[in-house]
Write a protein that binds this DNA or RNA. Structure first.
Length: 817
RNA sequence: GCGGGAGUGGCGGAAUGGUAUACGCGGUGGUCUCAAACACCACUGCUCGCAAGGGCUUGAGGGUUCGAGUCCCUCCUCCCGCACCA
């Protein structure tokens, strides 16, 4: 009697062996096998390790193992996103230094992942807070700086009053800080930016990328390309001086319908335009608008507000003087910060005109004739009216083109493309990040730190609790330095970089993670990159993924990379929730997978992660079903140790053997297809079906045959990616050479998928009425005869002859009576 | 408001236009046990029926088709993005 299935004995034993043999090592420059770079999004080390991580990583682990068995040279690395606000906030909350905190979390997560038997190659680990890593983050910053892609500018920035830091646009959700939920306010500061807008057009191109549509759509919307016209309206200034007000519009066809203009509160011409009798009111309005948070200001439910400046502009199309207003619904950060308002054909302008009793002039009519009073803005298509020589043109399809051509010919404006995308603000007034490697010299201004002086080390002793100023400013030894150019006393930059800078290139570092001469070895880079398969949560659809694409394009243009896109194929997993909420430590619903592994074994936990929900959808966590996967593994263990036919196995052609071979090859086909498609739940259910079939066969003569032995061999190979330990153990126990993970993934034989007989389903008037066994390949006439001869069918037809008979080969005969 | 996705047993979920409810959980009955747990075996969509057997069922309603969970139209609900972008 062999021993029962004891995962706690089996699993550590094989884990040690695999580690000794470096079984999962990716081989640099191996040209005998195709390379496959499989990558999971690396985790934040801010503390909340929960079952969601395990769910996210188990599927990719199976996928990478499968690829390896398919003969690929697989790179499947792991690392930690250790810098940044989440880690720092967690550290502040618990009163521990961020370094101590993140190190402890890294160790814990790494231990857990190893205990789960994951195939990650930890020899290539990168940790973004290591000086060996951020040295190169700083180096990349300097490359972009030299190329003019990193610049310093003053800008109204998103400021979180609680975290006391600047946030990127992407980190503001519903006007709130995406970390702490505090309302974000605007503040004018000198900040560092990356010029991502220079790549807006190229970033819209997803050609050659196998990405989920929704991610591409989200990025496309985020970039927000609009074609339109930029055009100058001369101001009618009292002192007679000439000045132009530049606006942007996507609807040049409505130019004759302009009845007022609107400036953003921050627009530089506001003061110039405001007349004395309106000055007090305008200044008060501008002051209050500046103090508002974005959520207050941009809420659509809120009624629009504004004030008249007293100033006027002239519509060049018809010479009319039109009033200029200031209003909160026009944003300084989009277009030119000024609009021409056409209330008849724009919903916002319409609402504003109604509220302040401004004129509404129809210039597009659905009927082609000017109508009566509009009850709402007409934004649809129609013919131009009240538009002088342009009357009668179809507005959008003809009018836009004709009027743009005219405006151009007059020298009043130019067609333009504008984007919603803003440059990436990367400065952070926080401690736990990579210091920005520049020095401020009184003589030479901003001077980059020479590359041979990198890394600019993060000083350990800084006060990291936020004060509003950068914590590094308080470290005298850090701040006081000399200018690299002239040697005079100078100040170091005290801001750190946004975490997303770290994570925008980590996948490049994996190619040569221990290179201390370069950020990457060019040969290793050419060998491994780009990433063949990227896997992670959809929450990074616009932040991390857009930034990473930008980095690759920017570094390419610096001459440092030879490819255009970082991630060729992308797949998103869903989220595991706990009864209707994201899992988090603060909610007290964090599952400790260590305990599950201890009581059920890593293989059962892995299998359950795959089985609990479709990987791409996610679902609600519950622990109840784990017994099912444990039972399955116990069953497989029993079959392989107690029923495996030895050398005495017979080899025949009995129906039982044929059935077994068919089931085996069906399972091979299904498992292969499911893993390719990231359908891990049905992959596991196919394995269970094969186990069930083997269990039945073990009680018959078929259980002593070669077909049965082959079926068990196949089951072990197919199981290997999901339950690596048990598969390895049983592979050895059935007399096969080490290691199951170095075997070739089985191929299915189409010929064996076909049965000799099939069950014909007979439908009468669309209802299933009978079924019968027939030989495969039987011709249609014989099928018809056989079916019509059935007493049951004859009874249903009741002497009538069928109006129509449809035969679907090998499946269904449908009779219309 | 705009864009995307989804509604299937008690539960998680499966189904190239062709036997809906695979696989698993849970439940019921049984075997084993002093007993319980574990394990194993059988049954398990709803409904009428003693049974044989019948009827119904994929959010609601309509349509196309010999045949619809799947395709088309109308509507409802939920989830996820974006949201005064001129």
């Amino acid at each position: 009697m062999a021993r029962a299935y004891e995962p706690t004995e089996i699993e550590p034993r094989w884990q040690r062996r695999w580690a000794e043999d470096r079984l999962y090592r990716a081989v640099d420059f191996d040209d005998t096998r195709p390379k496959w770079y499989a990558l999971v999004m690396f985790p934040y080390t801010s503390g909340d390790l929960h079952v969601g991580h395990w769910f996210a990583y188990t599927g990719p682990d199976v996928h990478a193992r499968y690829r390896r068995m398919r003969g690929h040279n697989v790179l499947f690395p792991f690392g930690f996103d250790a810098f940044g606000l989440p880690a720092e906030n967690a550290a502040i909350k618990d009163g521990i230094h961020p370094l101590t905190y993140t190190s402890a979390n890294i160790e814990r997560l790494e231990t857990q992942l190893k205990a789960l038997g994951s195939a990650f190659e930890f020899d290539r680990k990168v940790v973004t807070s290591d000086p060996d890593y951020y040295r190169w983050t700083q180096w990349i910053f300097l490359q972009l700086f030299r190329k003019g892609l990193a610049y310093r500018g003053s800008a109204p920035v998103n400021w979180c009053p609680k975290d006391q830091t600047v946030l990127a646009n992407e980190q503001v959700i519903d006007g709130r800080c995406d970390r702490c939920g505090t309302l974000v306010i605007k503040k004018e500061l000198e900040q560092w930016f990356f010029k991502i807008t220079a790549y807006a057009e190229e970033l819209l191109n997803f050609e050659g990328l196998d990405w989920p549509d929704r991610v591409a759509t989200m990025q496309t919307n985020w970039i927000g390309r609009s074609e339109g016209l930029e055009m100058d309206f001369p101001l009618a200034l009292r002192d007679g001086s000439k000045e132009q007000l530049r606006i942007f519009t996507t609807r040049p066809d409505t130019l004759f319908g302009v009845t007022f203009m609107v400036l953003a509160a921050e627009h530089p011409l506001v003061a110039r335009l405001t007349t004395d009798e309106h000055r007090a009111e305008v200044e008060a309005y501008v002051a209050s608008a500046r103090n508002e948070s974005d959520i207050e200001r941009q809420s659509t439910d809120r009624e629009k507000t504004g004030v008249f400046t007293g100033g006027h502009a002239v519509n060049p199309m018809n010479g009319e003087e039109i009033p200029v207003w200031v209003a909160d619904y026009v944003l300084m950060t989009y277009g030119t910060g000024a609009i021409m308002a056409v209330p008849a054909h724009d919903e916002r302008d319409f609402a504003f005109a109604k509220k302040y009793h401004l004129p509404i002039r129809e210039v597009i009519s659905a009927t082609g004739e000017p109508g009566g009073e509009l009850v709402e803005a007409h934004v649809g298509e129609g013919s131009l009216v009240n538009s002088g020589r342009f009357d009668g043109l179809v507005a959008k399809s003809q009018g836009i083109q004709e009027i743009v051509d005219f405006v151009r010919s007059q020298g009043w404006g130019e067609p333009t493309v504008v984007y919603r995308l803003r440059d990436w603000l990367l400065s952070r007034q926080r401690y736990w990040g990579a210091p920005i490697p520049v020095v401020h010299c009184p003589e030479h201004g901003v001077v980059p730190v020479p590359e041979d002086q990198l890394p600019v080390l993060l000083p350990e002793g800084a006060e990291f609790r936020p004060t509003g100023d950068s914590p590094l400013a308080s470290v005298k030894d850090f701040v006081e330095t000399t200018c690299p150019r002239c040697g005079a006393p100078a100040r170091r930059e005290t801001d750190t970089m946004d975490t997303f800078v770290d994570s925008s290139w980590y996948y490049l570092r994996y190619a040569s993670p221990n290179d201390d001469k370069d950020a990457w070895n060019p040969e290793a880079m050419r060998f491994w990159l780009p990433v063949d398969q990227y896997m992670g949560g959809v929450e990074h659809a616009i932040l991390h993924l857009l930034y990473s694409r930008f980095f690759v394009k920017a570094l390419r243009d610096c001459g440092l990379l030879q490819f255009d896109e970082p991630f060729l194929r992308l797949r998103n997993q869903g989220m595991i929730t706990h009864g209707g909420g994201k899992m988090s430590k603060s909610r007290g619903n964090v599952q400790a997978p260590d305990e599950m592994v201890a009581s059920h074994g890593a293989d059962a936990v892995r299998l359950y992660m795959l089985f609990i929900a479709p990987w791409s959808d996610g679902g609600v966590w519950n622990e109840e079903g784990i017994d099912g996967t444990r039972r399955f593994l116990t069953g497989v263990h029993y079959l392989a140790t107690q029923t495996y036919p030895g050398t005495g196995a017979t080899d025949g052609d009995s129906p039982g053997e044929r059935d077994l071979a068919r089931l085996t090859h069906q399972t091979i086909k299904a498992c292969s297809e499911d893993i390719e498609a990231f359908k891990f739940n049905t992959y596991v259910s196919s394995l269970m079906k094969l186990r069930n079939g083997l269990q039945d066969a073990s009680r018959t003569d078929a259980g002593k045959t070669v077909a049965y032995r082959h079926a068990i061999d196949a089951l072990l190979l197919l199981l290997a990616p999901a339950a690596p330990h048990l598969a390895e153990e049983l592979w050895a126990a059935t007399g096969h050479p080490y290691s199951v993970h170095q075997q070739r993934w089985p191929a299915h034989d189409e010929g064996l998928l076909r049965a000799a007989q099939f069950e014909l389903v007979v439908q009468v008037n669309g209802k299933v009425r009978d079924r019968m066994m027939l030989p495969v390949g039987v011709d249609e006439d014989r099928v018809r005869q056989a079916v019509l001869a059935r007493p049951k069918i004859a009874e249903l037809l009741d002497g009538r002859s069928p109006q129509k008979i449809i035969y679907i080969e090998g499946k269904i005969l449908s009779i219309v009576a």
